[in-house]
Simulated assay, not measured.
Amino acid sequence: MVEVEVCANSVRSVIAAQRAGANRVELCVNLSEGGLTPFLSMIEKSLSMTDIEVNVLVRPRSGDFLYDDIDFDLMKKDIEWCGKLGCSGVVFGILTRDGSIDKMRCAELVTMASRYNMSVTFHRAFDHVLDVEKALFDVIELGCKRILTPGGFPTAVDGVNTIKRLVDLSEDRIQIMPGGGITPQNVENLIIQTGVKAVHGSFLSPIESKMDYLNPNFSPESDFIQYYSDEKIIKKVVDIAAKF
């Protein structure tokens, strides 16, 4: 069966993922910026209210994946907190200036995660490497469990050929998990075309504000609409993935 991982931007989304039968969540905030490390309170609440596997995104800021010493110290501290709280895994990626995997720093974080028996997913920093094949082998060597990638394109459908290539090259030494624009309408073909064993998506739906008064000087769409993972959409993807 193909696994389904939900990119959960809230405790509400984590609950929806569990109810829909997803295998795990990647917990984060600020999806509009590509995802950032969630609040400590959000991690604690997600763990206390559900028993689904919770992997936490460790990304201290938006922008590129070339981190200075302050950024790196924050990442180490966040991984330590995740381990102490009992998270299932962490998700991160660090690059060097020339677009290579920063093996030295990533190895240090992998070692930290392993002390708490947490798995490691190398995230979409992978889509900004200079040499995809070399990067794949570097991440395998680091001991990461999976790579989250849309194949170097905005969506996994666009990057389907690269994803297939990565699956073939990996020879089951690491899980290649496509993410980016995955829907119930395209997930089946993506699985068939690539042979992946896991897929990833946020599966969001808008939720309107319950406020009785909304200031007419502001746009309701930008200031009062919230987006959460939709249990019904997740369930459709889970049902399709279960066929493989």
Rank of each mutant, 00 (worst) to 15 (best):
I240S: 03
K197I: 06
N161W: 02
S62H: 08
L166S: 03
W81L: 15
S10I: 11
V196E: 08
G201I: 10
G83D: 09
N9C: 13
T111A: 14
D51M: 01
V237W: 03
F244K: 10
D223S: 13
G34P: 04
A17F: 01
R173Q: 15
L142D: 11
V196D: 08
K76F: 01
M118S: 12
S41A: 13
G86K: 09
V160D: 01
F224E: 08
D172F: 03
G35K: 05
E171Q: 13
V167L: 07
P60G: 01
L166Y: 06
L40V: 15
K235E: 14
A241N: 05
A156Y: 00
F244L: 07
D131N: 15
V6D: 05
K134G: 05
S114I: 00
D78E: 13
M118D: 09
I240F: 01
T183C: 02
T50D: 03
M177N: 01
K45F: 01
L27R: 11
R146G: 06
V196Q: 06
S88K: 15
S48M: 11
L85K: 12
P154L: 13
V90T: 12
G63M: 03
V132L: 11
L142H: 07
E33N: 14
I191R: 06
D127S: 12
E231Q: 14
D51N: 15
E44M: 07
R165F: 09
K84T: 07
S170Q: 05
G93S: 13
L74S: 11
N9M: 10
Y116I: 07
S32L: 11
P220R: 12
N30T: 04
H123P: 05
G179S: 12
A16P: 09
E44I: 14
T111H: 11
L130C: 12
I174L: 09
I182Y: 04
V132F: 13
T121E: 05
E80M: 13
S229Y: 00
V157R: 08
N186L: 01
I163D: 04
T50G: 02
T155A: 08
K197F: 01
A125G: 04
A8M: 10
D223E: 14
I176M: 08
V160N: 00
L214E: 10
E80C: 12
L204D: 09
E3M: 14
L204M: 14
K235Y: 02
G201H: 06
K84I: 12
F126T: 06
L40Q: 02
V120F: 08
F65G: 03
A22F: 09
C144P: 09
I52D: 03
F203E: 01
T121Q: 06
I174T: 10
K197C: 00
Q185S: 13
D127G: 07
N161F: 12
E26W: 05
L36N: 07
R173F: 02
D51V: 00
T183M: 09
L166N: 05
L36I: 12
L214R: 10
L148D: 04
M211V: 08
R61A: 00
V237Y: 01
V54L: 00
A125S: 13
S88P: 03
S209G: 07
S13L: 11
G99E: 05
L47C: 07
Q175G: 02
L169Y: 06
N9H: 12
K235A: 14
Q226C: 10
V6Q: 06
V14N: 00
